[in-house]
Write a protein that binds this DNA or RNA. Structure first.
Lengths: 200, 200
DNA sequence: ATCTTTCTAGAAAAACACTCTAGATCTCTG
DNA sequence: CAGAGATCTAGAGTGTTTTTCTAGAAAGAT
């Protein structure tokens, strides 16, 4: 990588890092162009050169962290052999991530994330669907092996991820009644019951 | 209610209705102060008198529809006698609502909704916690009766609502692979397996 | 009848995202 | 190794959007 490109990447990183700091400190409202340029020391022109718009910057930031989170989750999945242990690993990886990167997780779980990620068929889709299809790819053999019930994949995803995401949102929003350790202990067993092929 | 108050409420309603129309037509970006004042025929001053800010207006709109949605769901719950049928009624009520009020549901499921609803301890909390605690109140007896497993209430809520919300978000975002009728048939049984007290 | 409060109105101010031109730094080719 | 071309940095300037502020109309209270 040439020095010029290096500098470009470094500038983009400065902006992304600064944007997350600003978001953590001042929230969604405070995440303005001037706040980010001040916090990063990078000029307005550079911001627009690299990201095109403030939404572009937020989208890039969201995708970066969404990618990291889904990467953690998929890695945890792929290390697991049985469907049951995979669900446990997934839940732990997800909850670990939001505890370790609370601010980033808040951004990823924000409404903007849904929009940006899904709205128009841009590169967002690619970087999201890779992990999502990895998710489906991991479950497929377990369906065929008779461990997981042969439900439509969207339903399996909702049953497995829905409770975890719901709990994560609740914890992220600052509600005090959520004990993530307890959840990590109890949820996998319960999710397993909902998607397993065994008769009840 | 005095005529003056009546007019005030009518004006606020005009603004809320117009805001939803604007949102439905032009999306989140298009939901500006001037668009709402034009669409409603109400002046700028009135908007700020009633809602204080554009965010205040959006928050009020979100809470109004969130209240209606949770109201539908809780009503469906309360008509059910057994835990199992309650879960089925809840799922159907939820999915019916998002189909019937797609635009409002999009707003309610947007990121802004999480923020606004939970962030600061304002009246938002009250209008949300009423239905939520109604939810808990309905489940409590079924836990004590041994139908539902004695899990912490946040976990029960996540297990029951998480999959439904996840699927709803997916459908609302326009992904084509979700069949809500099929989901309404399959999900209740699966959710029931996850929270029921019976041994597996 | 006048005083007070609530509501409506829109001009003016402030904040904001974004564009545009200029110039610096690096690469690559003749 | 000179200089043409590409990429990146810089910030003043533009247009739009939110918000504030002052004024006045309508209703109820005394």
């Amino acid at each position: 990588m040439s020095p010029k490109q290096q500098r470009g990447v470094a500038t983009a990183d400065l902006l992304l890092d600064a944007a997350l700091r600003v978001y953590a400190e001042k929230g969604e409202q405070g995440l303005t162009v001037s706040a980010v340029t001040k916090a990063s020391g990078v000029s307005l022109g550079s911001l627009y050169h690299h990201f095109g718009s403030i939404d572009g910057l937020v989208e890039a930031l969201t995708l970066r962290w969404m990618g990291r989170m889904l990467g953690d989750v998929v890695t945890a999945l792929q290390r697991s052999r049985t469907a049951r242990s995979g669900i446990g690993a997934l839940v732990r990886a997800y909850l670990d991530f939001i505890q370790e990167h609370r601010d980033a997780a808040l951004l990823v779980h924000s409404p903007a994330a849904d929009r940006k990620g899904m709205a128009d068929g841009n590169q967002a889709r690619a970087s999201q669907e890779a992990p999502v299809s990895a998710f489906a790819a991991w479950f497929q053999p377990h369906i065929e092996a008779g461990e997981i019930a042969p439900l439509p994949m969207p339903l399996i995803e909702s049953l497995v991820l829905g409770p975890v995401i719901g709990l994560a949102r609740r914890w992220l929003s600052g509600i005090e009644d959520v004990d993530l350790d307890e959840a990590a202990r109890i949820l996998p067993e319960r999710i397993w019951r909902s998607v397993s092929a065994e008769p009840k």
